[in-house]
């Protein structure tokens, strides 16, 4: 069995390196983007090999789904998709890069090799009963290091605001060439997306899953329905519900972090006994906001205040 694992790792590593090179160094932007999407796909396998199913889930949802959709749609919106000549300017710079890169690689690997990696596994195990959940990753994310997660959800909201601040959507979101299959596919698959994300959310408290993969799946479903031409309630106007939904996760976490102080607890310290319930509520709110943010990132600009009927491919 040992050699099988070794061959598997070797093949995976070789493929990843090759794909990374393809994505960054070969002519043809479309080819680069496709290579990068496959890179994400294989990274999910690498995470599985490294015993990190939580990250594998996120990578599967993000790498294969959301980032792919973002990159492809950006590619479609770029004016010059064709790129002439070599993807980089001078091959002379290799005289610098080969020794420099080699030295960096050697240093990094040597340093990484020397690391004892004591880790915090034991502390996490000890504190797990008090965290309110059984999945250690969820416990770290939503209890021990909840401040990081608060800021992370904040980054998503911030990215959506930043993108809206850059202007309106650059192009109507409906495809230029209409396919009758798309709306049908969207309608057919959307319930599946909702179901799977609800399942992942529920799994999160005791097994890999949780707000992020759930939100990413839900966001992917949202992008699908937009592609299928059903988005009238997603308006950029102040009166629509979208702004509230975008901020829901961030607002809920902040309200909780500050709210517990009214109960005499320090900032972000969950009252004993309520931790499990709080984590679940936070995951629900965060998941919804993550989904909404991903859709906002995909639209690449502030959507119109009113969608016109014709833009929806009806």
């Amino acid at each position: 069995m040992g050699w099988l694992v070794l061959v598997f790792d070797g093949l995976l590593a070789a493929a990843l390196i090759w794909l990374a090179w393809q994505a960054t160094h070969t002519p043809g932007l479309f080819r680069s983007v496709i290579s990068f999407i496959i890179f994400g796909l294989l990274m999910a396998l690498a995470w599985v090999r490294l015993d990190a199913p939580d990250i594998a889930l996120a990578e599967a949802a993000i790498g294969a789904g959301a980032t792919g959709a973002l990159l492809l749609s950006a590619l479609g919106r770029l004016v010059a998709t064709h790129e002439e000549g070599a993807p980089w300017q001078e091959r002379r710079d290799l005289y610098f890069w080969i020794p420099a890169g080699g030295a960096l690689l050697g240093l990094l690997t040597l340093a990484a090799w020397m690391l004892p990696s004591p880790g915090l596994g034991e502390q996490v195990q000890d504190a797990l009963p008090e965290s309110g959940v059984q999945n250690p990753v969820t416990a770290v994310l939503l209890n021990f290091r909840a401040l990081d997660t608060l800021l992370e959800i904040g980054v998503l909201l911030l990215a959506a605001i930043a993108i809206w601040s850059l202007g309106r959507m650059p192009l109507p979101s409906a495809p230029a060439v209409r396919s009758p299959a798309l709306p049908a596919l969207g309608r057919l698959l959307f319930p599946m997306f909702v179901l799977v994300s609800a399942y992942l959310l529920w799994r999160g408290s005791h097994a890999p899953g949780g707000a992020f993969p759930a939100g990413a799946v839900m966001g992917a479903g949202g992008i699908l329905t937009i592609l299928a031409g059903a988005q009238p309630w997603l308006t950029g106007s102040v009166h629509g519900p979208w702004r509230m939904l975008l901020s829901l996760g961030f607002a809920a976490m902040l309200a909780l972090a500050l709210g517990v102080m009214a109960l005499g607890q320090p900032f972000f310290a969950y009252p004993p006994g309520l931790a499990g319930l709080i984590v679940l509520a936070l995951e629900l709110a965060a998941g919804l906001s993550i989904a909404m943010s991903l859709v906002a990132l995909y639209l690449a600009g502030q959507p119109p205040d009113h969608w016109e009927g014709e833009a929806r491919g009806e």
């Binding site: 594998a56 959709a69 998709t81 495809p175 698959l189 992942l200 799994r203």
Partner: peptide, 30 residues
Amino acid sequence: PLLDVALVLALLAALAVVTFVGRAWSDLQS
């Protein structure tokens, strides 16, 4: 848990194709 990863991967792989068809492909054609 790996079954869940497979499930998510299977679902989301559809998204890339649909985006491709909906955006890049139709843009190229037009």
